[in-house]
Amino acid sequence: MGKYQFEICTNSVESCLAAQEGGADRVELCAGIPEGGTTPSYGEIAIAREVLTHTRLHVIIRPRGGDFLYSDIEIRTMLKDIEIARKLGADGVVFGCLTAEGEVDLPAMQKLMEAAQGLSVTFHRAFDVCRNPQKALEQIIKLGCNRILTSGQQPTAELGIPLLEELQKQATGRIILLAGCGVNENNIARIAAETGIYEFHFSARENIQSEMKFRNEAVSMGGTVHINEYARNVTSVRRVKETIESLHKRI
């Protein structure tokens, strides 16, 4: 294991395979990428576990898009999804809960942490919309999470460098900060150098055009939200390799 660790945000088994071939240490498997990532299906997790022979598999536990204020029934759903991820052989799970006031929801998190015992736990980018990141960092450490995925409360990790650097110093090795959102081959070395962070989360996706010959582009599967049904973004082996290499070349 080298100094740096690389996690690929994957939206399919196809992307998991590309991440593994490109040299990723682990993947975070998600559905619903346009919503920021939601829990993937049973089948997606099962097949990802089959094909990932030397790359760790983390599964996001997020029942819906939107905010991170969850009802009792949503917490029950998350608990069941953690149970399923464990049974299917996931190495870790990724979740985060907030209160209506923007604080870490400690009772909800404690329930989820108990269910996730033995798995690696990442507190996801709910952290980036919490009220007080310094306070939240201490609470998340106390909960026993292994890492926090964060962009430094900015739209991208590159813009969040000042807070990421501050939080890395505050953490003092007690928890791993995983820098994510907008990390790519052009900025990963700068983020590493200026923050001292050594784990990175990125998607390395490329746009793939559909092979459909017959197309009815007047119909959208999203109803009033128009999405190009004849293109999709998939993690690329080339971009995974280039992003990793762009950091290693600066060491």
Rank of each mutant, 00 (worst) to 15 (best):
I75R: 10
T195S: 07
G144W: 07
E166F: 00
E185L: 14
P162Y: 12
I73W: 14
L149A: 03
A85S: 12
N184W: 10
G160L: 04
E166K: 07
E74H: 12
Q117D: 09
G96L: 05
C97A: 14
E114G: 06
A157Y: 06
Q139I: 11
G180M: 12
P133K: 04
N187M: 15
Q110S: 11
L149F: 02
E74C: 12
N184C: 15
L163D: 11
V93H: 01
A157N: 08
I197R: 01
V94P: 01
N146K: 13
K87H: 10
I175K: 00
T99S: 12
G144E: 09
L88D: 02
V129K: 08
I148L: 06
N146Y: 11
K87S: 13
E165D: 10
T172R: 15
N187L: 14
A179P: 06
L164Q: 03
S151D: 00
I141A: 12
N186Y: 14
M78R: 02
L88H: 04
K87M: 10
C130D: 01
R76S: 15
G92Q: 09
L119M: 14
V94E: 02
L79Q: 07
G180V: 12
H124D: 04
H124A: 03
M78I: 04
V129Q: 11
R125E: 02
I141H: 13
R174A: 07
L88P: 00
I176S: 14
V183D: 07
Y198A: 08
E158M: 14
C97W: 00
I141G: 10
I75C: 12
A136R: 00
S120E: 13
N132T: 13
R147M: 04
G102V: 01
E166R: 05
T99D: 10
N132M: 07
I148Q: 02
D128W: 01
A116Y: 03
E138S: 14
Q153L: 05
E185N: 15
V104A: 02
K111C: 07
A126M: 03
K142T: 15
E194S: 08
T150D: 00
T195L: 05
A157T: 09
A193F: 06
G152T: 00
M109Y: 02
K111I: 03
C181N: 12
D128V: 01
C130M: 08
